[in-house]
Design a protein around this nucleic acid. Structure first.
Lengths: 241, 241
DNA sequence: CGGATAATTGATCAAACGATAAATAACGCT
DNA sequence: AGCGTTATTTATCGTTTGATCAATTATCCG
């Protein structure tokens, strides 16, 4: 006797008219989804869907609706994550830690490439990661909830990227290293300004739902150029004659 | 037979052992707050506190806690607002409509004042309004919830401020009016960039909880100067010889 | 095939939450 | 002082929501 469920799955899989091709043909990639999954795979699927789900509904989104989207029952979530909060923590890891690319730091400091090209490439690649529906909204939800997450992330961003950018600009213009002359408030504020411009593109798209009229890369190139020009004019005077 | 309730009141008032000192001493000017208020006054108090409350907790904040902060009971809220959603709507009005200053439009277009001074003054005053805990967070909460509110507000901002700014810049540099030559994507994008820089100051403070190291006005002045310089270099060429 | 393991489900709990209705009491008016 | 109006409270309803536990069944292994 078939089980009765109240809802129609997203693919209408309850329909039994489709052929049963479950017959353990040891195919390497069966296109039909299994009913029982390997725990590590199930966990990954839940985590991936949770990213999408919480990005859409915020962290107040209900576990039952997440389960429905996954095609599983709600208690199953608690087999893989001890609490909703633990699942959210996993989402943070997935997005804010997992999507950071360590090679970005090399791009910035690779002096065999002209500075403007380096910055352009870094900010374009960085923008490609954070200018997504999931990244932008989750970052904002996390900020409004306010655990230290955002400040912590931005502290890392400052150390791994912003300070390196400033060091490279100093070098390019023959100024003292940031090791000798500390980074000024003005310098870091200009980097914030560039960051703000990029980040705000994501806010407009994914939080205000206002489609952009231009492609992101050209905006970034323009901003980087303006930034380089601007930072040069306000740099503190040389200390060495 | 007395009814049994399952919970203990916040003050443990079920305990009858405390003295009854409630004996109606008719003092003329009691410093303690009134128990009954005029409906219009009560409504204003609720609305004001709701602004603060929802800015802090988001729109999922509970009506019971709001009532507790107001020193009233939760059902009383429903005497003044038919639903929680109506109360939230009132919060929108209070903040995003009520705090807009119509004279800003005059500041921008007053050609008896130098352009740079006009823009500096407008953006400083505007920043003073939106760079508050309540404004920034409510705007972000509203965006993430996404009714059309943010897009609608920004459409107004564009019409009443951004387009006027561009018109004044066109005039300053002897370019054709925006009535004759439509605003270019590049121009509006540069205004967005300035707006982003200011808005992001609020995000850093009130969403990421990162205190600013500089005063806002000096940042704004610098941004306005950079903006004016930048927009001049990228303006489309004159169409009249 | 047949039993063991464990992934998954069904049932349900307790607290939280928006909302409603009736009871209470503060204030104004005569 | 007495009375009517109504601001405010008390009690409670119906759902929702995170979480728990025992029952179920798909899958693996010999």
């Amino acid at each position: 006797m078939p089980q009765q469920t109240m809802y129609e799955g997203p693919n209408g899989n309850n329909d039994e008219s489709q052929m049963k091709t479950l017959s353990k043909t040891r195919r390497p990639a069966p296109p039909r989804e299994q009913q029982r999954l390997d725990p590590t795979e199930r966990e990954a699927i839940i985590a991936r869907e949770a990213v999408s789900f919480f990005a859409e509904h915020g962290f107040e989104g209900q576990t039952r609706e997440l389960a429905r989207r996954l095609g599983i029952t709600q208690p199953l979530l608690y087999r893989y994550f001890p609490s909703k909060e633990a699942l959210i923590e996993r989402v943070y890891q997935e997005v804010f830690v997992g999507r950071w690319n360590p090679s970005w730091e090399k791009i910035i400091t690779d002096r065999s490439v002209p500075l403007k090209a380096r910055l352009g490439r870094f900010y374009r690649e960085y923008a490609q990661v954070i200018l997504t529906y999931e990244w932008i909204r989750l970052f904002m939800f996390a900020g409004l909830k306010n655990l230290g997450l955002n400040a912590r992330y931005l502290k890392m961003l400052r150390e791994r990227a912003f300070e390196k950018v400033i060091e490279e600009i100093r070098f390019e213009y023959g100024r003292p290293s940031t090791g000798d002359l500390p980074i000024t408030v003005l310098e870091i504020e200009m980097v914030w300004g560039l960051h703000a411009a990029i980040f705000y593109l994501g806010v407009r798209q994914f939080i205000y739902s206002m489609p952009l009229e231009t492609d992101v890369d050209s905006i970034i190139d323009a901003k980087v150029a303006t930034f380089l020009g601007g930072v040069r004019t306000v740099l503190p005077a040389k200390t060495s004659p």
